[in-house]
């Protein structure tokens, strides 16, 4: 089949960018969306043009590196799947598809459809972990975890960090991403000692990165390829409000990485 593409082309962060129209004539319905772009790129290189830059790595929906909007839908029209796991059989011959990068102040465009998501790394660094020295762990079965808690924690931990939640949110909020990690660790006994501190430091860092606030709209959960549920945000809100009001002064509401810190969040 034949596919027409309107792709966002932007040479670098300072380039204003624009949509450019391309045509891919021989698309097989078995191709993945990214393989279709590979074919386009091969043609572009053969013509001596600059290929379209897009991020991808594992191409099996787990690494979270790929992602852009197809006709206004993050990761394309099939929900709960990444764009690398979306196949061309979901499109029709002659379709015109508009490809646009994630847009958020916290996700500056690097080139074409590639954006910088290091803000997510800094949010995790701000508190998305359990402090446990290598080698100091107790025997694994010494701490029992009820199966339902483990299952719920796993659901939240399934987040792949792709950024579709931010892309879909009218406020460019990172609440689903942040809430998923806070929920994952907050549901497990191992995560309890730092629970209050974590909620505060991660939420403060998310704010510092320039993400918007959550208005419970639900677009994020609807497009999430890992099917993270909206309730993780409620859990984050509860932990945050509780931590602030009960006033365990474990965490200062100061960002771990102040805005416009070094790229990549180094020391």
């Amino acid at each position: 089949m034949r596919i027409v593409l309107d792709i966002w082309r932007q040479r670098g962060p300072r380039d204003p960018g624009r949509f450019v129209r391309y045509e891919v004539p021989d698309v097989s319905e078995h191709m993945s969306f990214l393989e279709m772009l590979d074919v386009l790129n091969v043609g572009l290189v053969e013509r001596g043009d600059d290929p379209v830059a897009f991020d991808s790595d594992c191409r099996e929906g787990i690494c979270g590196m790929c992602g852009f909007l197809v006709n206004g839908d993050p990761h394309g029209p099939t929900h709960h799947a990444t764009i690398c796991q979306t196949h061309m059989r979901h499109f029709a011959d002659g379709d015109t598809l508009r490809l646009e990068p994630w847009r958020a102040a916290a996700f500056p465009v690097i080139k074409d459809l590639v954006v910088d998501r290091s803000a997510f790394d800094r949010i995790i660094a701000a508190g998305g972990y359990v402090t446990i020295r290598t080698g100091s762990a107790p025997e694994a079965n010494a701490i029992l975890v009820p199966k339902t808690d483990a299952d719920r924690a796993m659901e939240a931990a399934a987040c792949i960090g792709c950024g579709a939640c931010v892309a879909a949110c009218p406020n460019a909020s990172a609440a689903l991403f942040t809430g998923a990690k806070i929920s994952h660790l907050g549901l497990l006994p191992q995560g309890q000692p730092e629970r209050a501190r974590r909620a505060v430091t991660m939420a403060v860092q998310a704010r510092e990165e320039g993400f918007g606030h959550c208005t419970s709209i639900g677009e994020c959960a609807a497009v999430c390829p890992a099917s993270i549920q909206l309730e993780v945000i409620a859990r984050m809100n509860r932990d945050f409000v509780k931590a602030t009001l009960t006033g365990r002064d474990e965490a200062a509401p100061v960002a771990v990485f102040p805005r416009r810190g070094p790229a990549g969040g180094g020391g």
Binding site: V130, I132, A140, V145, P146, K147, A150, A157, L188, Q190
Partner: peptide, 16 residues
């Protein structure tokens, strides 16, 4: 032991 302590959500039995 290390991974369980880090909060890796391993599958559990009903007894925990």
């Amino acid at each position: 032991d290390q991974c369980a302590a880090q909060g890796v959500p391993f599958a559990r039995e009903y007894g925990g």
